[in-house]
Design a protein around this nucleic acid. Structure first.
Lengths: 216, 216
DNA sequence: TAGATTGTTAATCGATTAACAATC
DNA sequence: TAGATTGTTAATCGATTAACAATC
């Protein structure tokens, strides 16, 4: 029925959700695509086009009900599903992500944290006791987590990913510098913080070059 | 002279850099756009188009020299500039980012870490002693950092950003859930980890829906 | 009813891909 | 020289914007 929704639209959905959440908590009841577009710095046309990929959530002459639209987007994103997740690698990044992330309101439920280093196994991370990676197969066979968060060193990433794929995990969030390729049937979201840093570096250089040119 | 390079091209540059770094360390000397395209899962055409925004780095009949191309991209990204950076907010995320990030090879040099909480001020984070945020103006006036990394709670983000802008900071990397708008003359790179999580949630739901349909 | 704003179609713009002459 | 592969132009494709009839 629905034709495939483009990647650009999907990438914008979390941003809509974020802005609608803000509007909700500031008590706004209704908003027009025009008002929202001004807040977000996009065109009203784009907002209407994007939303209409999923259905007609607005009302002519009125606009959109903020709370209703927020709920619709949450459903589209699957934020109500509570997919189970395990986190592998309880180093700095793993501990931070496990501690800071509101999994429940982002579509997931964290159910276990694993590491292979003896100094880390058994330590506490935000309500969890870090388990031995050697026991992960048993855990997966029992609990069937939907997703794995990989916060392991980049040298280990590929082996761990293959390992987990062989145990039936089909979705990954990968924080390591090396990227995990999206192969058949496997869903991957790569997070590369250093890419963001490099993009920022580019923008600063570009800006400096422009200033230099302006002076001439 | 150069016309404006599109955002899509810039977004891909760090990925090229990453792959070229891998090729370098595996000792590969030359690569054709075709080979690289297969490794990266993009078209050879796109690679050639992208690179030619910045110059002709290849040689007909030969391809590209890996090391030379990597250096060129590093220069384009400004990774050799060592822009000075301060980090504000030494909570979990701040400490992790300060510790895990290879600033030197990503265009930056971290020169100071700040926080406003008395329990955190004075503690050590990877070679740095956390300084009192109350003293940041003095520090900025003296050292003129180019960029600030914001790892503060979302409630504090906007006030801190305005504060720092008034002290002359023009570029930000923002980790807080609330986004920092790109206003005139201010460069911003927003990193929203929960957006990535939501995108992954979408992809998993989409995939499940498809499976369900296939069964019918 | 009159005004506002949607949903949707059509027009425009930009990005990606294909093709090929230039040339190492 | 012959083969390979670039740089670049032209063709295609997709995404964004504009416009407007439908309708609350």
């Amino acid at each position: 029925m629905d034709k495939k929704v483009s990647g650009s639209v999907i990438n914008r959905l979390p941003r809509y959700y974020r802005h609608l959440t803000d509007l909700c908590s500031s008590g706004t009841e209704r908003i027009s695509s025009k008002e929202l577009s001004e807040r977000m710095g996009v065109t009203a046309s784009q907002i209407r086009q994007d939303l209409n990929c999923f259905g007609g959530f607005g009302q002519q002459g009125y606009g959109y009900n903020v709370e209703m639209l927020r709920t619709e987007i949450a459903n589209i994103l699957g934020l109500n599903r509570g997919y189970t997740a395990v986190l592998v690698g309880a180093g700095h990044m793993g501990r931070t992500f496990a501690t800071n992330t509101k999994f429940e309101s982002r579509g997931f439920k964290l159910i276990g944290i694993f590491d292979s280093s003896p100094e880390v196994i058994g330590t506490e991370v935000s309500d969890f006791t870090v388990m031995d990676y050697a026991d992960i197969k048993e855990f997966i066979d029992e609990n069937h987590p939907k997703m794995a968060i990989l916060t392991v060193p980049k040298e280990a990433m590929k082996a761990v990913a293959e390992d987990l794929i062989s145990m039936g995990i089909k979705a990954f969030m990968n924080f390591s510098y090396t990227e995990l390729a999206e192969t058949e049937g496997i869903i991957v979201e790569n997070v590369h913080l250093s890419d963001s840093l490099m993009r920022l570096s580019y923008k600063i250089s570009e800006c400096e070059n422009k200033e230099k040119l302006d002076k001439e």
